[in-house]
Amino acid sequence: MRKPRNLRALGVTLRAYCGNLIMNNRIQQAFQKQDKKLLNVYFTAGYPRLHDTVPVLKALTAAGADLIEIGMPFSDPLADGPVIQQSSTVALQNGMNMRVLFTQLKDIRNEVPETPILLMGYLNPVMQFGVENFCREAAAAGVDGVILPDLPLDDYVDEYQEIFRRYNLKPVFLITPQTAPARIRRIDELTDSFLYLVSGPGTTGGANTQAEGVQDAYFQRIEDMQLRNPRLIGFGIADKASFQHACQYAEGAIIGSALIKALDGVDDAPAAASRFVSSVLN
């Protein structure tokens, strides 16, 4: 183990280290005690207003969301469609940044003790914040996992894996219909949380334009690979019907853009978030 820099870091490091030994991460727990399909929801931090982050998060979990992905807004989100792009622009204009986000999340585990929380965003803001700083702050806030779509696997292994482990943060990687089988196996090996199955070609929020059966054949092909990690299907899941359909092929599904749309222009974002989750689950 590397020598921690100060007492706080020592605390975090020890907790994370013990966590690795005796208690697994909240993401793994959520899948272990799973008795139903899991709903993972994504929303952008600081959207629609700067201080909506925590109230929206609480409303989502209270309404039954099983995992939460908090989007860290970026000026140039390449993998995102217009809805998440727009929410990112608004959040940045609202003054959201990494420091503000970690301040907002400081006491989140007093209020939302069990629901897994993941941070999703792009590599550049994390690099500028400092990868080690980022992991330390995330772990201190009680974050469980990180999704950075533009972090290459090789770079993760060479430069990030050791740091992520030290803070008990689980990386989540994407798999697409074009990902080669050998690469899927490698991603599965590097993962001990869940695999993020991108439903089809396109950025977030896109509709499924594939010919009938193509998508299901892909989901089935992945299922037949008997991977060690559970899977969640995302991109283009928008409502109860598409959620339930995706759940036939995975342990659950991820909804992002549709929720962001439901928050657009509302006065009471937590109430709208709650209504949205209910509409998917009930």
């Binding site: 390449l78 993998a79 590599l123 779509p149 533009d150 972090l151 290459p152 770079d155 990687f173 994407l174 798999i175 697409t176 074009q178 990902t179 080669a180 690469r183 991108v198 070609p201 396109g202 950025t203």
Partner: peptide, 12 residues
């Protein structure tokens, strides 16, 4: 340099 791309672009 390098190739910092989302998985969707990886095969291409």
């Amino acid at each position: 340099g390098g190739a910092f791309i989302p998985e969707m672009l990886y095969p291409n």
